[in-house]
Amino acid sequence: MQLQNPLWDYALKLYASDVVQALCLRLQDEQGLSVNRLLYAGWLTQQHCLLDASLLDRSSARYWQQQITSPLRAIRYQVREAKQSEPHLASLYKALREAELEAERVELAHLYSLKRRHDYTGLLSSHLMERNLGEIALLAGQQENTQCLELLRALGEALLKPL
């Protein structure tokens, strides 16, 4: 597994954008989509690759996200709430944030290993982005959720802007 990889670099760069971060967090918190999967879809688009939803759905990245990253995030959210009335929990909260970031890095390494070299498609970048993000919505059961699709459209536009 390659923890330092182009997908990790892409994710760090894109997630530093306030617009991308806000859209990703809304899609995660309000629609149940994975930030890492969203960034993976954007990165694949930049690589002119089509996202393979069936491969993603049965991958080690899926397992890692469900069994490690998401539970860590849930615990961090609980501690974030608790530290409002118990300030001494601030160092635990910080440690959980760092652990979650490392778990996301491992998850992105799993996702990076899924990229196929010969998946090039001749679709325009905007159409490919829409298709790749649509696959993420489908995997999350949100393919007919109008609000989710509007947020995905906005995220797609933000991800296609030059870095």
Rank of each mutant, 00 (worst) to 15 (best):
V106C: 08
E130Y: 04
Q67M: 14
K83M: 12
K115M: 15
Q46H: 11
L111T: 01
L51Y: 11
L23N: 01
D18Q: 14
L38A: 15
A109G: 10
P87D: 04
Y63L: 10
A154F: 00
E135H: 06
R76T: 08
S70E: 15
W43Y: 13
E102L: 13
R76I: 10
A74C: 14
D9F: 13
R131W: 02
R117N: 10
L123D: 08
L92W: 08
L160V: 01
D29C: 05
E98L: 09
Q4F: 10
C24V: 01
E100L: 03
T121V: 13
P162S: 05
R37C: 12
R73Y: 03
D18N: 14
H88Y: 08
H48A: 10
Q46M: 10
A22L: 03
E130D: 14
G134T: 00
Q78E: 07
R105C: 02
E150K: 12
A103Q: 12
L151W: 00
L133C: 00
L108Q: 11
L159F: 01
L3G: 12
P162N: 07
R73H: 11
L56Q: 11
L92M: 10
V35I: 06
L101S: 11
H88R: 08
N36V: 00
L163R: 11
T45D: 03
A90L: 14
L101D: 08
L133F: 00
E81M: 01
I75L: 13
E157C: 10
P6M: 03
R153W: 08
Y15H: 14
E102A: 09
N145E: 07
L108M: 12
Q65G: 04
Q31L: 02
V106E: 00
L39F: 07
A41T: 02
W43H: 09
D9Y: 09
L51I: 07
R58P: 00
L151N: 02
A61R: 01
L138P: 02
R116E: 10
G141D: 15
Y120T: 15
S60T: 05
L128W: 07
L92C: 14
S17M: 08
P71V: 09
L3E: 06
P71T: 07
L7P: 14
Y77D: 06
Q4N: 07
